[in-house]
């Protein structure tokens, strides 16, 4: 892991086209995210936010241009990336406890069939504690609220001790308490050098959280500090008529 730690950039994309079966979904991606920084992806539904996240995980191929994660091809950097899916994408009826879900973050380290070790169980307990779900370890994952489930999935990535965390719309349908809990953990992780990539529709949150914002809609429209990217002009370019100016000089997005 020495090489990875030494690499300055968590993400480096140059002129990248990303897509499935040779058909690009997202083009013109140029990113340079320094290790320990926070990147927020903004764009309408179907803009390619999830595709970009999956390309960082090596699950969707880069068709053109280059992409590296800590200096490596994405698929080879999986040991240091942690993925937090949308809770809605998971089967809530699946018979598994919250602690087991968090333990999945350790599976890669544990391997296929070796029993879990004390260090793994400790990592799970600590991760659950950080997201405020210590008392829910033995609860069925499906019986948690949407926000608690999302917190458990963040705990899973924490337990994986990832250096780069990728979160796909982590605040969709999440209650305020859970959103606060998740934001607190993300800020703590960021302060200790973990890089973050997070997609959201929430412009206010992006302004507050991001070091860099990347504006997507089929292609990358802009990237840079939130103050430069989240302007009425660039938003209107990416969103077209779905960007609406409101009275205080800010721009809001309306979904079609």
């Amino acid at each position: 892991m020495g090489d990875l730690a030494a690499a300055g950039a968590a993400l480096r994309y140059t002129g990248a086209s990303i897509g499935y079966h040779g058909t690009p979904v997202l083009t013109h991606v140029d990113l340079n995210l320094a290790a320990g920084r926070r990147l927020v992806l903004i764009g309408p539904n179907g803009a390619g936010k999830s595709t970009l996240i999956k390309s960082v995980l090596g699950l969707v191929p880069v068709l053109d241009g280059t992409a590296t994660v800590f200096g490596q091809p994405p698929a080879q950097a999986r040991a240091v990336t942690g993925y937090v899916p949308q809770t809605d994408s998971l089967d809530a009826d699946f018979p598994v406890t919250t602690a087991q879900v968090v333990m999945m973050g350790r599976y890669r380290r544990i391997g296929w069939w070796r029993p879990t070790r004390a260090v793994d169980r400790r990592a799970v307990t600590q991760a659950l504690d950080r997201v405020g779900l210590a008392d829910r370890a033995g609860t069925q994952f499906g019986t948690l609220s949407g926000g608690q489930r999302q917190r458990a999935l963040v705990a899973r990535a924490v337990a994986a001790e990832a250096r780069l965390l990728l979160l796909d719309e982590p605040f969709n349908g999440v209650d305020a308490v859970s959103q606060d809990a998740i934001l607190t953990v993300l800020r703590e992780l960021s302060a200790t050098g973990t890089s973050l990539v997070l997609s959201t529709h929430d412009l206010a949150l992006a302004r507050e959280l991001a070091d860099q914002v990347c504006l997507l809609n089929g292609r990358q429209w802009a990237v840079g500090p939130p103050g430069e990217v989240l302007t009425a002009e660039t938003l209107r370019r990416a969103y077209g008529r779905h960007a609406v100016d409101v009275s205080d000089g800010r721009t809001v997005l309306v979904e079609p």
Binding site: L90, D91, M104
Partner: peptide, 9 residues
């Protein structure tokens, strides 16, 4: 439980 998560891991 989580095909994308497992693939990502």
């Amino acid at each position: 439980f989580d095909p994308v998560g497992a693939a990502a891991a």
